[in-house]
Computed example of a mutant assay.
Amino acid sequence: MDYDILISGGGIAGLTAAAAFGSAGFSVLCVDPAPPVTDREAAGADLRTTAFLQPARDFLDQCGLWARLDGHAMPLQVMRIIDAGGARPEPRVTRD
Rank of each mutant, 00 (worst) to 15 (best):
A51K: 01
E41V: 08
R48D: 05
M79G: 14
A67H: 13
A56P: 00
I7T: 11
E90D: 08
G14Q: 07
C30P: 04
P36L: 06
P75D: 14
A43I: 11
D46R: 13
F59R: 01
F52S: 00
P55G: 07
G10T: 01
V28K: 13
S23W: 07
R80C: 11
L47K: 11
E90Q: 12
P91N: 02
D58N: 07
A84C: 14
A19T: 10
A51G: 04
S8A: 15
L69P: 04
A51S: 05
E90G: 07
T94F: 06
Q54Y: 04
A51N: 04
D46Q: 10
D61Q: 10
F52Q: 00
Q62F: 04
I81T: 14
D96G: 09
G71A: 14
L76T: 05
Q77T: 11
V93H: 15
G22E: 01
R88D: 14
Q77I: 04
I7E: 10
Q77H: 12
I5H: 11
M79K: 12
A24H: 09
F52I: 00
A34G: 10
G44C: 07
V93R: 09
V93E: 13
D32S: 05
P55I: 05
G22H: 01
R95E: 12
P35S: 13
P35L: 11
C30D: 03
R57D: 03
V78M: 10
